[in-house]
């Protein structure tokens, strides 16, 4: 018999997901009223383009967090994959597919190393990915000799700055990642196992699930998506920048948490993460439009992260 049996409540997730969506709409309405430029097609495209990199990272780390892990190496992996991809993207060298596959491939490799160290080596995810954070950063600097990799082909740069059907490519990629990820998590066996492993590893194992494989899959997806984000960023700034993406993992994790995914694992959704990403993006954009200095922006962002979790905690009790 359990204490919380005495308190009947709505199924968890329902209220919190809904609540965060309402909060998002509220923020949008507020910003539309205070600054006329906010709710214009141009500005909305700007916001979406800005959030797409953090969005792709956040969706990757959603897999890991639902599976009960964490990935702190995202920002460094982003830089590493960016410089690797960029160095194969000089004009007139390789076809576009080479840097793209290499970038994603390096991300997958890093994710696999993380995942194997965590599962086979039984080291805590926090420690493994903290180590990987500096390893990948170091690798990025070694690979590029500490210098930005410039002179990239126009085709490569289009991944970050081009349009397709009048929609910026990063946004299209973000949407594609959202759809595929949501389908994996919701409608595939592996997706269900990710929730089960994060919710109760012992029960998952006793149900015949190969938990190590499931965790490894989550870290590989996360690494692969970090690779994709690294390519998009390098293309957008037309440079493979070994110092790019510092602390990006924190923004990604923040988006996941705002979206109602539990850091304890077993609970969360892609939809929640997307809203979390949009909230962070809209607030950054809105505060810029309102000429709030970046010092205050940081404070406000932090307050929102904590408030979101407080709200979630209340619902989860």
């Amino acid at each position: 018999m359990n204490m919380n049996l005495s308190k009947i409540k709505l199924p968890s997730g329902y209220l919190s997901k809904y609540g965060i969506f309402i909060a998002f709409l509220g923020i949008c309405v507020l910003l539309s009223l205070t600054t006329p430029y906010f709710f214009t097609p141009q500005n909305i495209l700007i916001i979406l383009r800005q959030v797409s990199i953090n969005g792709i990272l956040a969706i990757g780390v959603t897999f890991v967090i639902i599976a009960g892990g964490i990935d702190l190496s995202l920002g460094s992996v982003l830089a590493l994959t960016g410089v690797v991809a960029a160095s194969f993207a000089h004009p007139g060298t390789y076809p576009l597919i080479v840097p793209v596959l290499l970038g994603i491939g390096v991300g997958i490799l890093v994710g696999a190393v993380n995942g194997l160290t965590i599962t086979v080596g039984r080291v805590a995810p926090f420690i493994v990915t903290l180590g990987m954070m500096t390893i990948a950063r170091g690798l990025a600097l070694v690979w590029s000799n500490g210098r930005p990799v410039t002179n990239l082909s126009p085709a490569f740069n289009d991944i970050g700055g081009g349009d397709l059907l009048h929609i910026p490519v990063p946004i299209l990629l973000f949407v594609l990642v959202i759809i595929i990820s949501a389908v994996i998590l919701k409608y595939t066996r592996t997706g269900r196992y990710i929730y089960a492993v994060g919710g109760n590893e012992n029960a998952a194992r006793a149900s015949g699930i190969r938990i190590n494989r499931v965790k490894l899959f989550a870290y590989i997806i996360c690494g692969g998506l970090a690779g994709l984000a690294g390519i998009v960023l390098a293309a957008r700034i037309t440079t493979g920048q070994p110092n790019a993406g510092i602390a990006y993992e924190l923004d990604a994790i923040a988006a996941v948490v705002i979206g109602g995914t539990s850091l304890m694992g077993g609970r969360g959704s892609i939809a929640g993460t997307v809203i979390g990403v949009l909230i962070i993006g809209v607030i950054n954009n809105g505060l810029d439009l309102l000429n709030v200095t970046s010092y205050y922006q940081q404070i406000i962002k932090g307050v929102i992260i904590i408030s979101a979790v407080l709200l979630d905690r209340k619902n989860a009790q």
Binding site: G199, N200, A203, S262
Partner: peptide, 8 residues
């Protein structure tokens, strides 16, 4: 502990 995913 080993039977159920309580959050599921």
């Amino acid at each position: 502990k080993e039977g159920l995913v309580l959050s599921g």
